[in-house]
Computed example of a mutant assay.
Amino acid sequence: MASLKMIEKGNWEVSFYCKQYNGENKKIKKRGFKTKKEANDFANNYIKMHTGAIDTMFFDVVDEFIDYKQDKIKYNTKINYKKVQKKIHELFENKPINQITKGDIARFLDKLKHIPSQQKEVKQKINLIFKYASVYYNLNYNPMDNLEYELAKSKPKIKEILTLEEFKKLDEILKKEVKPLARLYYNLMYYSGARPGEIAGLTLNDIDFNNCTININKTRIRTAKVNSPKNSSSNRIVTLPKKCIEMLKKVVNLSLPKKEFIFSTPIVYCKCLIRIIKEYNFPKKISLHSFRHSHVSLLIEQGVEITSISQRIGHKNSQVTLGVYAHFYKKKNDKILDILNKID
């Protein structure tokens, strides 16, 4: 039996016990309902969902799944889950979860075929939702199993890169157009191959001036929001050329509190880069990630082994690096073929 209490006019609270999938009898308390009926309906629906009632409405399971994931995923991933939740509510037909068919899902995915990346993302999340329902709500039939649906193909993204000569030309513009700290940010991006948020997350504690290294152990999202790096392999020590260390010594206030961020957030440098490209009619439309891609391309051109590159840029393994940068190796293989063809 749910306990209902009016906190104030238009704000009802409900509390009740409900046995979870693992057998735990958990107390649930929630407030913010406009009416007593809304509070009571929430309790009844929650109990129904958690006692194996597979005729629960699909949107209720979706919302429950999104709430369930919130404490288990990183900030940017949370945003992606919320986008999927919104899209399902907008375009999917709400019906009991045990009545959803493969055809329902296919028709829904058809509505997203003009955005291939979103279509793929949504399909993956729906599959997770049904797996969640099979565990928590005893759903025996998963319409995602063996779903033969051909996803729309995304156009391959062109990874714009800057050669060393092109970066030096850009750096000359940076000397004139931006503050020394901003110029330092772009240089660290180019010569370290780190992600934009990883450089933005640096503090003086992370810099070893004697050994010319930076310790990448977090990624900056917003002004005061940080995450752990993208994966365990992203925690790494990255060596820097001496000229970057000299720039650090010259530009950074070394009396800065050791735990205070050195740089602004990535969005600041993104906007600055867009402005410079436009004002100077720069020949390449680069982004912040272009500096990372450029660094990898530079190392490949210099013959650095793929395993060393993978470790340096924080990929899980060299296969991931090859998957992302295979086209860079194709260019190198073309050069090898040219050399071989010249041999008598």
Rank of each mutant, 00 (worst) to 15 (best):
N80C: 08
Y137L: 09
I158A: 04
K123M: 13
Q99G: 04
L164I: 13
Y132E: 10
P116S: 03
V62C: 02
F59T: 06
Y132C: 03
E93V: 15
K153H: 02
Q118C: 03
Y136C: 03
L128C: 12
I79Q: 12
I97M: 05
K125Q: 14
V84M: 10
N98M: 08
K159V: 01
L109V: 00
T51Y: 12
I97V: 11
K157T: 10
Q119P: 00
Y149I: 06
F92R: 07
N127I: 09
E150N: 11
D55R: 06
F58H: 06
N98D: 11
R107D: 10
F108E: 01
E160Q: 07
F58L: 03
L112H: 04
I100D: 04
K125L: 10
K72S: 13
A43S: 10
N45M: 10
K169H: 03
I161A: 01
M144A: 04
K123Y: 13
K78V: 02
P156I: 05
L128D: 14
E165W: 01
D63M: 08
K113H: 06
D71V: 11
E160K: 03
E90A: 03
F92S: 06
K125C: 10
G103C: 09
V135G: 02
F130C: 14
K82Q: 15
T56V: 05
Y141I: 15
L164H: 11
S134E: 13
L151K: 04
I97R: 05
K125S: 09
A133Q: 12
I88K: 07
T163I: 06
K86I: 11
L91R: 11
K111F: 00
Q119K: 04
K123W: 09
N98G: 04
